[in-house]
Design a protein around this nucleic acid. Sequence first.
DNA 1: CCCTGATTCGC
DNA 2: GCGAATCAGG
Length: 201
Amino acid sequence: MSWTDERVEMLKKMWNDGKSASQIAKELGGVTRNAVIGKVHRLGLSNRSGSPAPAAGASAAPSTPAAAAAPAPQPEPAAAEPAAPAPEPAAAPVAEEAAAPEPPVSPARRNIIPAGQPLPPQPSANEISPEALAKVNEVEKSAKKLTLMELTERTCKWPVGDPATEDFWFCGLPVQQGKPYCEAHVGVAFQPMSSRRDRRR
DNA sequence: CCCTGATTCGC
DNA sequence: GCGAATCAGG
């Protein structure tokens, strides 16, 4: 397959849409993610230009310039040194904790997370088939316990625990084809409407 | 191990 | 121009 105008347009669209190279490759078909990345670079749109302005202190670290080609005579006297004061807009909710002897829940965290009304579906209170629940309880013991960042298309995204505490993680077991959850959690996530009918408010 | 994008370089 | 191989990282 070759990069027809049509395909290039799709590529541009999806790339600026935030799709990953592998996703794009999959949807375009006939190309690998390497091909997509290569094309993206050749097109000069490696920088996903658009609206979302990435945070300053993000992952812009070169780290691999290796080449001794110390370039750029610096035509632009301005905006050259990224070494800003780095005021760190909003401190990351998760970071340090080493010096915390025994406080169960950091007070800071309490402020950051405004108590969730919209807590994700918990297997706790509901009318789910007992067997399915048992299954889930079993599975949760062998869960991968992934963080949000570690989730992929193939990891079960079932949340466990309270997001406001340290005791929160995602199942992370292999998902059931197509579904966002593993087999066990699919069982409690997708119930037939029959079993959830009379929940008279 | 799964994934991400970046770069190199023979074709 | 193309993209596999490789790299660097999460």
